[in-house]
């Protein structure tokens, strides 16, 4: 019974709207029966579409990598170790979510100009860390809490190095946290418009920079095609990342 409820809700709120979007992208604006591929043709006719897509993927990739590195280490420290001022640090890590992102960006922009990061892709990666890192730290912290200290102590007792423990025990067991972080941070990075515009200064043109101004366009076919293209990216990235996760040790033995 429950499964029917789930599928009904899924069909109604997920499948139906998306299929409308697909339908609109293959018909002429304002009509759902008049078949035309003009929406897609116009989309790929945009000069900077593919370039911007590439830029978005590269930036998203580095944002995800930084998030994994910082999230794993900070999350572990917060979950497993006791140290002076832990609660303060914990609160500070969430601060970027509580302050208005634009205010942070304007402040950081000046600093970035001084150190030469403004108008560069590295600067954009950096600013995308602000709205993503707090989530990653939370997710990994919870991951490590449920993992517990004992698993690692066991490795230590058996004589494994810190690196070995991380690789063979922590990574495989934190897999679902890693998946969440990859997907979440990539989606957040992909959809940042204003902060990318300010720090990237227009020299770094991501997909959001091309896409957002078009949302008010009257050409609904083009907007539909654009939206689908936009939604396709995180999906492809996720599939790619999933492939990489298969390289972790002990993957086939982990029950999911």
């Amino acid at each position: 019974m429950k499964i029917y409820v789930f599928w009904t809700i899924f069909a109604l709120f997920v499948f139906f709207p998306i299929s409308l979007l697909v339908l609109q992208s293959f018909t002429s604006p304002g009509s759902l029966t008049d078949v035309s591929a003009l929406g897609w043709e116009e989309l790929f006719g945009r000069r900077r579409l593919l370039e911007a897509t590439g830029v978005s993927i590269v930036i998203g990739f580095f944002v995800v990598v930084c998030n994994l590195a910082i999230g794993l280490s900070a999350g572990k420290a917060l979950a497993l170790y006791d140290f002076f001022g832990k609660t303060v640090v914990d609160t500070l890590f969430v601060m970027p979510l509580l302050l208005p992102l634009l205010a942070i960006t304007f402040g950081l922009h000046i600093a970035m100009i001084r150190i030469g990061l403004a108008d560069t892709a590295a600067g954009v990666v950096f600013i995308h860390l602000v709205p993503t890192i707090p989530y990653s730290i939370r997710i990994f912290r919870n991951g490590y809490v449920s993992l517990g200290k004992r698993m690692q102590e066991q490795g230590e007792v058996l004589g494994a190095s810190v690196w070995r423990t991380f690789l063979d025990i922590e990574l495989p067991l934190l897999r679902s946290s890693i998946q969440s972080v990859i997907f979440l941070t990539f989606v957040i990075s992909l959809s940042q418009y204003v902060i990318t515009a300010i720090i990237g200064g227009g020299s770094v043109v991501t997909l959001a920079m091309v896409y957002f101004p078009f949302l008010s366009s009257a050409n609904t076919s083009l907007v539909a095609a654009f939206s689908l293209w936009f939604a396709l990216l995180p999906l492809l990235f996720y599939i790619g990342a999933e492939g990489l996760l298969r390289l972790f040790p002990y993957q086939r033995k982990v029950r999911r």
Binding site: F106, H109, I110, I113, R114, A118, D119, V194, A197, I198, G201, G202, S203, V205, M209, V210, F212, P213
Partner: peptide, 26 residues
């Protein structure tokens, strides 16, 4: 051509003026 709201463009220029950036991108 780079799409950006005029307000954001001016904000960017204001910050660059403040930081003394003489080599802009616009």
């Amino acid at each position: 051509r780079t799409p950006m709201d005029t307000g954001d463009i001016l904000q960017k220029l204001r910050t660059e003026r403040q930081a003394g950036k003489q080599e802009g991108t616009i």
